[in-house]
Design a protein around this nucleic acid. Sequence first.
RNA 1: GCUGCUGUAGCUCAGUGGUAGAGCGCGUCAUUGGUAAUGACGAGGUCGGGAGUUCAAUUCUCCCCAGCAGCACCA
Length: 643
Amino acid sequence: MSSNNVTVTMPDNSTREYMQGTTGTGIAEDISKSLAKQAVAVKINGKLCDMSLSIEQDCSIEIIKRDSEEGLELIRHDAAHVMAQAVQNIFPGTQVTIGPAIENGFYYDFARNEPFSTEDFAAIEKEMHKIVERGDVFVREEWDRKEAIAYFKDKGEMYKAELIEDLPEDEVISVYRQGDWVDLCRGPHLPTTKHVGTAFKLLKVAGAYWRGDSNNAMLSRIYGTAWRDEKELKAYLTQIEEAEKRDHRKLGNEMDLFHFQDEAPGQVFWHDKGWTIYTELMSYMRRKVKSKGYQEINTPQMLDSRFWQASGHWDKYRENMFIIENAETDNPAALKPMSCPGGAQVYKAHLRSYRELPLRMAEFGRVFRKEASGARHGLMRVQAFTQDDAHIFCTHDQLEDEVVAMCDLIKEVYTDLGMAESITVHFATRPEQRIGSEEDWDRAENALRKVLDRIDMKWVINEGDGAFYAPKLDFVLEDAIGRQWQCGTVQVDMNMPRRMTLEYVGEDGERHVPHMVHRAILGSVERFLGVMTEHYAGKFPLWLAPVQCVVATVTGKADEYASEVYEALKAAGIRAELDIRNEKINYKVREHSVQKVPALFVVGAREADEKTVAIRRLGSDAQSVVGLDEAVDALKKEARAPY
RNA sequence: GCUGCUGUAGCUCAGUGGUAGAGCGCGUCAUUGGUAAUGACGAGGUCGGGAGUUCAAUUCUCCCCAGCAGCACCA
């Protein structure tokens, strides 16, 4: 190998020789014209780089095409840059900050005295198309740190200057030029702005804090989506529309499940149908935990502030508590935001022996939490809700097995509810605001780490996101449009037992402090039902469906028989409705389908004569005529709850 | 809490400086129809709340409340 040649290894392990200083573009062109045309970046030794980067040493390379996943991410990243240039062209004096690619698109945060409005989108998009059409080459330059800071300061780009100042000393300061526009960026980029294509669309404006800190200035963020071609863009926009139809707030209204009103922000008015689902789910949970050796308790909703001082909530959580004047005692009281301190009192009601441990106490407690006005969100984030809470008091030796058993129980329940596929576990470690000793936090976090090794579930770490008293495993689900909601949770608490002076008498006759594990399976019943509604698009499993079967008549002549069918269903414990309205069968079928009723028994003169029903199931237009008794039996069997 | 947007009939929404309209739903009547909307007629609104500008405010301005999207928060 001559000294000014380099050997590059292709993904198939074949090698090629090139002159030192060749580029991704050079290699792509050498391999084939069509490849060169599709190439947008190059991976050198696994690192994504510009096509124009000169290659000085032997390496392995992979040409990244525009239609690959990585290509798509570059399109989105560059769309953000193009948007930033467009915005600065149209609105001089706007400062640019950061603008990354995100899932399905991109955003860019701008600092401008006047915020943007969606009415500005047309003009910005038009300018973006111009920039793309022009096909400016993205040119990478590496600048001296001081000069870069001076340059951006001079341009009035204070945020960019701050970003550079905060970069580590040894970091290369790279900027990219596109035409006459320059932006600080790590790169890499597409070869030219033309490669961005035209399949992008600006979607929304929103405020966002500089560096995600609410103490900082609020910037103006513009979100957009970008795809490889118009077809993908259109598919995405359609998908969003479809997802919006599954919104639990919309379905809750349409299906007459619940409502909200101004006088009770963040609190639910449950209607009969919604409450039916709610109580069915609760009954299931009660059967479930009873079978796992839990007792069930219930504790007060309103407790004296001194109680919350002892628990630590008064210090760390008061902002989120509803506080009530209490003239009789001079002390305010507060609605409970959590059930744990109350549960601890039940534990303390007796002197406990190690023989009683582990002691598993479930409490379906209604808790109240004052939420920031912008945080409330349908059933997902309310101010009054029921937690399917439980507290397990155990010895240190029992801890790990107990926590594993809880995780197994959570998995079991989610499987029964058809939600198991959607879980992600978040391991949330000690937060800045916390109580207790570092040793206790170490022990608690280590216990959870061991548990994670033993349960077969995918998990991610969520540094610093633990509760103020304990680290936790959160079981997170997603709503229709991909927002994440914490549902189940398991928290290993070494603090509360000490603060609330819990003890048990050990085998040695001495008093010891038990461990306390907090756990919720559904989390908030309200939130869980919100997620579930979106998951099933309102088509709940038969055992949860508020109306399981409607008996609908084709003609008034069948009214009497229809009542007979209806009574048979009721007698079998089916939640049934009778529809003998003076309407055509088409009308009834449509209405009950829209209402997501799982089973429709249609009866007319024929069925009345033959003592049958014509069954139509939700989601299918097939019909089957079945004898009445048989139909009722089958539905009864199918409607049984999972446990 | 912050930024932007929204609030009109039970629901979805149109509209206007001179106290309002559609579709669906609801009621009545006719129709007895076989698997996703039968027809006609009718009832129904303090235009989120308060203040201001104006001869006149649902419409313009300000404040408050609630909701929507995002940010921050989420024990």
